[in-house]
Nucleic acid binder design. Structure first.
Lengths: 256, 256
DNA sequence: TGAATAGTGTCTGTAAGACATTATAGC
DNA sequence: GCTATAATGTCTTACAGACACTATTCA
C-alpha cells in the first residue's frame, strides 16, 4: 500500500482498526531443589513458567500467560514492564521482546495483536511473591508440564517460541547470569546452561571457560577486598572458585 | 493488569484502542558496479535501501520506508509480504520481523503501532521494478546516505535497528546467501560479508571456510551433472571454484 | 610481462578433546 | 575410607595466523 493511500484510508476512517494491543509475558525462572542426600550435592534445577488462571470469558478457568492491554501513553515495552511488576513485584529483571502474534481470530474478543516478551527472574523473587499472594490463580509450572496443558488463546505457541528463543540465547549470549547469583561456581553455570539446553555437554567445560584465550574474557575470578580469590562450598566438600560475568561477550561468527 | 480486568475493560469499551497497526519494511539490496578497469575485477558492492517519497500529510515530501496498514483478515507478516510484493513485484524473498515501534506520538495520525520487517532482495529484482515503474517517488539510496537524511516518522531509527540486526545476522546465520546467486565464489561471499561488516577481515578466509572441520559443512563445491567441479571466471582471469550453501548451520556457542 | 584474482606450502604457537589423576573435606 | 565435587596433568590431533609462494588468464 502506498503511504499516501494509507493516509487517505486512515483519514477517511474507512478501515477497521485493532481492538487492542496487549503485551503478554512469558516469565521464566529456574527452581533449585536440594537432592535429599545427607552430603552436600548439586541441586536439581528445573525451568518453570508463571501462569495465571483466567476467571472470565474467554477461556474462563484455563491457564494463560500474564499480560494486559497497552495504553496509548506508553510503549508496548513499558506496558510489559508494568505488567511484570504488577504480577511479580519485581522491577529490575531481564525482559526482552521477541515476537508479535496477529493471526486473525486468535482472540475471540476481536482484532487483537499481541506483543510477546519473555522475562528471566530469580526464583527468590517469585517465591516471595507467591507466599504473600495466597491466590491460587497464579502458579509456577514446569515448562514441560505447561506445554502439555491446554492454554488460553495461542499462548502455548507463544510459550514454545519463547522457550526456543531463550534456549538459543542461552548459548550465544550471557543471559545465564539472569538465573545465577552475582558470584557463582562453574558447576552452577554449567547446570543453568544444561537446564535450558540438556544436549549441551562439554566434558572439559571448566577448562574451556577458564583457560582458552577466546573465551576466558567472559567470566573472571571473584576476589574479596584484599584481592584473595573467593570460594564457595555451598555444593561441595571441596570449596570451588567463584566467578562473575565481566560483561564482555565475544562476537560469534560462522566464518571465523 | 489481570486478564480478567482486561476483559472487563475491553468489554466496557472504556479504553482507547489503537488507530492502526502497520507493517514497515526495510528493503535492503546490494548493488554491484563494475570498477572501470579494462581487465576483469571484483565489482564495487554497496548496501542500499529502498525508500518512498511521501505525497501527503504527514511528512509530505519526505522519504519514508515502504509500508502500510494491516487488515483484520491478515497477520502482520502477511501484510508485510503483501506490501513487499506491491512495492517490488517480488514474492519469494527473505523477509523477517525484527521489532515493534510504539512510542506515543511517533505518528501524528494517532496511536499507531508499527511492526518493522527487513527484507533482503537481489538487486536484479529491484532493477527490473525500477525500470518498469518510472515514478521518481521510489528510489534506492545507499544506507549511509539514507541515515544522513531526515526520514519520516521514526524511520531513521527503524533503519538503524534493521541495519544492526542484519549486520549481526550476517556473521551468525547464512543470510549472505540472500545477496548471492545460487552458486558463488569464495571472493563473492567474502565481499558480501564485508559489505555489511567492513571490520570483518580474515586473511585466510578461503582456508577457514573450506578446510576447517567445524566450518566446512556450511558450503560445498558446486558440481555439474557429470560430477565435475564447476568454476567461474566472472571476476578473474583464473577461474574460481563455485560453491553453494548446504543449508547446514553449526550451532554457535559462547561456551564451547 | 604485468595485473588481478585464485589458491597452496609451510611453519609456529595455541586450542580442542579425551582420559586419567589428584585434591578437598564431610560423613 | 567412601563419596561428591573441584581441579590439574598429559597426550594427540586440529586449527589459527602469518607470510611467502605458485597458478591462471588476458590485455
Amino acid at each position: 500500500m502506498n503511504p499516501n493511500l494509507a493516509e487517505e484510508n486512515y483519514s477517511a476512517g474507512k478501515y477497521r482498526t485493532p481492538d487492542g494491543a496487549p503485551a503478554d509475558i512469558v516469565i521464566f525462572t529456574i527452581t533449585s531443589t536440594e537432592r535429599g542426600t545427607v552430603k552436600k550435592s548439586l541441586p536439581h534445577r528445573e525451568l518453570q513458567v508463571l501462569l495465571i488462571q483466567r476467571k472470565g470469558w474467554p477461556f474462563a478457568g484455563q491457564w494463560a500467560l500474564p499480560g494486559g492491554f497497552c495504553k496509548e501513553t506508553e510503549t508496548v515495552y513499558d506496558c510489559a514492564k508494568r505488567e511484570l511488576r504488577e504480577e511479580t513485584g519485581v522491577g529490575e529483571v531481564h525482559i526482552e521482546y521477541f515476537n508479535v502474534y496477529s493471526t486473525p481470530g486468535r482472540d475471540p474478543r476481536g482484532w487483537i495483536i499481541s506483543h510477546a516478551f519473555f522475562a528471566l527472574v530469580h526464583e527468590q523473587y517469585l517465591a516471595g511473591r507467591q507466599a504473600a499472594d495466597d491466590a491460587a490463580d497464579v502458579k509456577l509450572f514446569s515448562v514441560e508440564e505447561a506445554l502439555g496443558m491446554e492454554l488460553a488463546f495461542d499462548h502455548k505457541q507463544i510459550l514454545q517460541d519463547a522457550l526456543d528463543q531463550v534456549r538459543r540465547q542461552m548459548l550465544t549470549t550471557i543471559i545465564a547470569k539472569e538465573f545465577l547469583p552475582e558470584e557463582f561456581t562453574i558447576s552452577e553455570l554449567y547446570q543453568v546452561i544444561r537446564t535450558l539446553v540438556p544436549e549441551f555437554e562439554e566434558k572439559n567445560f571448566i577448562r574451556k571457560i577458564t583457560s582458552t584465550q577466546s573465551r576466558k574474557g567472559i567470566i573472571e575470578e571473584a576476589r574479596d577486598s584484599r584481592g584473595e580469590r573467593k570460594v564457595s562450598n555451598r555444593y561441595s566438600q571441596r570449596a570451588a572458585q567463584l566467578y562473575r560475568f565481566t560483561g564482555d561477550v565475544p562476537q560469534l561468527s560462522l566464518y571465523s
